[in-house]
Design a protein around this nucleic acid. Structure first.
Lengths: 222, 222
DNA sequence: TGTACATCAGTGAACGCGCGTTCACTGATGTAC
DNA sequence: TGTACATCAGTGAACGCGCGTTCACTGATGTAC
């Protein structure tokens, strides 16, 4: 029956892809018990391997955790980038889609998200992690810059970096407070997505951007 | 020399205020190692007491953690309330002061803040904690309602609850991403306080509120 | 095609450690009389 | 004022447990010739 212990799928003495299997096991543990609730030993056990085996692939627990966080940032970046889709069909629609992708990632990859933002990994002394994190943020920033470039020319141009920081903070705040499926989430009279979308609309209006209706009208005119 | 071990301040067989001493010790450990990095045993040791002593005051580790989180929410509420100061000298000034108080609390009480928002304590099954959390949020919500009541009557009234949720999320996002003194914080080209203040101003403008300059002018006219 | 050998991923036993928790206990405090 | 007693906060020894880490090892794989 259970000759296939855990997610090991061993076929012989050598595992074959133990490194990935350990990452998978750790993600599972983090999702169930939080970033601090996973142990090297348990990940090994769940991969069907002796407790000493992980040391062939990771120096220690923190290196595995950092590796998960970095992988998370890379997938996060890819997802935001796909949602942005180079600003198609129009900048505002694409911008809002990035916000939705942010929340979707946090909800669908809670373990990655935890490792990225709540694991307490120091960013200095982890340059690769910092870079991966900045590459993800760069998507939001690039989108903000395109929005700024599109702003009505009679308005003062808002600084794109500040915009991006505001949007990021708002998204992260909503994701942290309301955006997880688990018991730590607070109740909300609307979906996190709607809350974020409304907030972004108000914010952009405050910067002098035309509303969605106005944009629809202006694009209908062309 | 060191007859006063740790924060114990014992004077005899009985500690006197062991419960508070344990909370203090736990706060210290959480601030240094994160909410998961504190142990019952270590808190006892740091309070200068045997490992069995804490069981006289807390059922287990989680009860101590929940107690810290609840105390945190209560202090948080008090601080926000003091900053709000019933909307004096004017609603907008007081509102921005609440935002600053939010960030100040997160920075000055990182251990409480962690226990409140990042400890993974389930809110259901912890009714007292949920209530304390909602009482703190109620301050922000009441402030938002006063702002709404003050809105120019020719504008559509924005929903105060949504406003409060946006402001809370933005504050929490900024606090989480940039607002801690430690190594997990990201670099920022401005202070978290300035970032939040600017974001709130833009947001309120987007809702149709008069800007600070306009308000200053209108109050100067009186 | 076969063989010798280097490489290296994983073994399994062992270690020291700190934790959570229990237990019968003991010392201090307060109170009834 | 003194004494007996109930209460209860803290002791200290003990337990079982799982973790991180090390070590000499062994089995599988690939490659040189």
């Amino acid at each position: 029956m259970s000759w296939d212990k855990g997610r090991g799928r061993r076929e012989g003495y050598h595992h074959g892809n133990l490194k990935e299997a350990l990452v998978e096991a750790a993600l599972d543990l983090i999702a169930r018990k939080g970033p601090a609730g996973f142990t090297f030993a348990e990940a090994a056990r769940s991969a069907g391997v002796s407790p000493a085996a992980p040391y062939r692939h990771f120096r220690d627990r923190d290196e595995l955790l950092a590796s998960i966080a970095q992988q998370g940032f890379e997938q996060f970046e890819a997802r935001l980038n796909a949602a942005w889709n180079d600003g198609r069909p129009d900048t505002l629609t694409a911008f809002q889609r990035v916000g939705k992708a942010y929340l979707a990632f946090a909800r669908e990859h809670p373990a990655h998200y935890s490792a990225m933002f709540e694991s307490g990994l120091p960013l200095d002394g982890n340059p690769a992690l910092l870079i991966a994190s900045e590459r993800a943020f760069a998507i939001i920033r690039a989108a903000a810059e395109r929005l700024v470039a599109m702003a009505p020319p009679d308005q003062p141009r808002p600084p794109a970096l500040m915009m991006a920081l505001h949007i990021w903070s708002l998204s992260h705040g909503i994701a942290s407070l309301f955006g997880r499926g688990d018991a730590t989430s607070r109740k909300l009279p609307m979906s996190p997505e709607d809350l974020l979308e409304a907030g972004v609309l108000v914010y952009l209006k405050g910067l002098g951007f035309p509303t969605a209706q106005q944009m629809a009208q202006s694009s209908a005119k062309k």
